[in-house]
């Protein structure tokens, strides 16, 4: 059974579905997946994300997380400890002044035994590489470090899934890299299901599956390689494609045979080397 499942999910902020923010969304996310949800502002991607742990409830349809219905009040706390959420603004999600005390916030709320909290806090900080900063003032950290603390704060709940709503939008390149590295690690080493909401195509390219949203609907849902082949379509809905993909697109126009789906630096180097080698061989 799917870990997160939306069934005919529709949503309007004022309950009037004639101008719905989400229209009939049916997606299934399995345990251990790394899914990116890509879309421009107003495409409904953040609204969708807020349905995945019960911050918003469907106007129509149903969302289940690990078999629990998000509309079920009784299950809410359990849903939230199963699927944690990281937000865009690093400042506005840190509750306590000191790093480790902030990380302890969720398990404290859950009434977990203090010794166990200690253990979880230490482990969580270790996982995101912030152990060194555990007694630091959260306010003095860089944006990337704050987001890692926010992630650690969720890890301390031992969630099965982490949803990240544009976690890097307000960060500098260094911070973005730190956060992306942490996210990948959580997925590959801790087997945590990741749902990454973003408008950066290079971040989406790191996922194993990309869902493209436009006007409240799912437009594409496939592997990054397949999704970025649709360069024209993505551009038409206001999204970027990786430079490499665009280069392949242009080279094809010049009758140079290249694969369409090239999304990383390394792949691009390999492909270009092949083209250049080809000529040497034919000579």
């Amino acid at each position: 059974m799917a870990f997160i499942k939306t069934e005919n999910l529709s949503f309007a902020y004022d309950d009037d579905l004639s101008h719905a923010a989400l229209k009939n969304i049916n997606i299934e996310i399995n345990e251990g997946e790394f899914v990116a949800i890509l879309g421009h502002n107003g495409s409904g991607k953040s609204t969708l994300a807020k349905h995945l742990n019960g911050i918003l409830l469907p106007t129509e349809g149903r969302v289940t997380v690990d078999g629990m219905d998000t509309a079920d009040d009784e299950a809410l706390i359990k849903i939230r400890r199963t699927a944690g959420m990281v937000f865009q603004n690093p400042d506005n999600q840190i509750v306590a002044s000191i790093v480790e005390e902030d990380v302890a916030f969720a398990p404290e709320n859950l009434g977990i035994d203090p010794l166990e909290i200690r253990k979880r806090v230490d482990e969580a900080l270790e996982t995101v590489g912030m152990t060194k900063y555990k007694n630091h003032s959260a306010h003095m950290l860089s944006g990337g470090q704050k987001q890692r603390v926010a992630i650690a704060g969720l890890l301390a709940m031992k969630p099965k899934c982490i949803i990240l709503d544009e976690p890097t939008a307000m960060l500098d390149p260094k911070g973005r890299k730190e956060v992306m590295k942490t996210i990948k690690k959580l997925n590959s080493e801790e087997n945590i299901t990741i749902v990454l909401i973003t408008h950066y195509m290079d971040e989406a390219a790191k996922a194993k599956r990309v869902i493209v949203m436009n006007k409240g609907e799912v437009m594409l849902d496939d592997t990054p390689h397949y999704v970025f082949q649709n360069a024209g379509l993505l551009k038409s809905i206001g999204l970027d494609v990786p430079q490499s993909t665009e280069l392949m697109f242009e080279l094809r126009k010049q009758d140079i045979k290249v694969p369409l789906a090239v999304i990383s630096d390394d792949e691009c180097v390999t492909v270009l080397k092949e083209i250049l080698e080809e000529d040497r061989v034919t000579d």
Binding site: N53, I55, I77, R80, R81, G84, M85, F87, N92, Q93, V95, E100, E101, A104, F105, A106, P107, E108, N109, L110, G111, I112, D113, P114, I117, R118, V121, A150, G153, L154, M157
Partner: peptide, 16 residues
Amino acid sequence: AMECRCYAGGKGRTRL
């Protein structure tokens, strides 16, 4: 963000 981290008032809270 606090709700997402299961905050529901002081009842039943433990401390690190």
